[in-house]
């Protein structure tokens, strides 16, 4: 029973990891940018949620209504103000600039919030659970987060393949020059992609802050989880991030079940295993 429980909890956790991964995958797909500060932005969103919940005395789920647009705005400004200047043939500038950004965000958060672990409380929802046959309990909150994660991934998939914004994303991703000939301002399209990515980061950050305690230093770890989910699922595949997230979450929980010290290690090993046998991930997009 413990094992089944571990697997179910792992699947639910995978939803959160998919949220970490989706934003990362999106901007890589549109502009080949790997944002090293992605994890720190998730933590920033969590702290933003914390500030809003304490200042306004609202539930973190209500705070989402503010966190998401604020993060999106940060994403747009960041992209147009700094990151667009780094894009080009050379992969080094975006990598190093986002690395610097990661250092700045971490230490900025430390300065403001100190290194103490924080947590957001979602009230009664947190203890509510659904009893399943066979002594299994599924927390309402983790389940809800998983459902939201699936909905977000579905929404991103829809935007990418069925909206005019997604068409612009794909066109710019295919051929930047020619896309400009269609009247698309590349800088603006990239800004929108980063805004969308950070909107998802906003949701991910608040969920993270409700689920576990967080402090300014945990960003890089979240980046790595997101990255592993992207690679496991297959590059360029939005649904793949969900599968990757679930595989990662389940591996971690199984590892923890064997030995508490192996939780993270088991996730990394699952990732390295996929990399060894299927270097392009389980479901790479064929194009």
């Amino acid at each position: 029973m413990d094992w089944i429980n571990a697997i179910i909890q792992g699947i639910l956790l995978g939803g959160l990891y998919a949220l970490f991964a989706a934003g990362l995958s999106l901007i890589f797909g549109v502009m080949r940018l790997v944002n090293i500060a992605h994890g720190d932005l998730i933590v920033l969103a969590a702290f933003l949620g914390l500030t809003i919940t304490t200042a306004l005395g609202v539930s973190p789920l209500i705070a989402l209504l503010l966190v998401v647009p604020v993060m999106a705005a940060i994403g747009y400004v960041l992209q147009r103000g700094i990151l667009n200047q780094t894009l080009g043939e050379d992969i080094l500038p975006p990598l190093l600039v986002t690395f610097g950004l990661s250092v700045i965000i971490q230490n900025g958060l430390l300065e403001i919030y100190s290194a103490d672990p924080q947590k957001m409380s979602a009230g009664a929802l947190e203890t509510a659970s659904i009893a399943l046959p066979g002594d299994l309990n599924i927390g309402v909150l983790p389940l809800m987060m998983f459902v939201v994660a699936v909905a977000v991934i579905a929404g991103l998939q829809w935007i990418f393949y069925h909206s005019s914004l997604g068409r612009a994303f794909r066109a710019v991703s295919d051929k930047q020059d020619i896309a400009q000939l269609m009247g698309l301002n590349k800088a603006h399209v990239f800004g929108l992609a980063m805004a969308l990515s950070l909107a998802v980061v906003g949701i991910a950050g608040v969920f993270l802050g409700i689920r576990t305690s967080f402090d300014p230093s945990i960003g890089p770890g979240r980046l790595i989880f997101g990255f592993e989910a992207v690679i496991i699922g297959g590059l360029g595949n939005i649904w793949g991030t969900l599968i990757g997230g679930i595989i990662l979450g389940v591996s971690q929980n199984i590892g923890a079940q064997i030995n508490p010290g192996w939780q993270l290690l088991a996730g990394h090993i699952a990732f390295l295993f996929v990399l060894a046998v299927r270097p392009r991930g389980l479901f790479p997009r064929i194009d």
Binding site: R167, R170, A171, D174, K175, I178, A179, M182, L184, D287
Partner: peptide
């Protein structure tokens, strides 16, 4: 220089997106 991720119709539509 067509957009390879876009269908024929989408290529045409994006031409008219202005």
């Amino acid at each position: 220089q067509l957009f390879q991720s876009l269908s024929v119709k989408e290529n045409l539509i994006i031409g008219g997106q202005m």
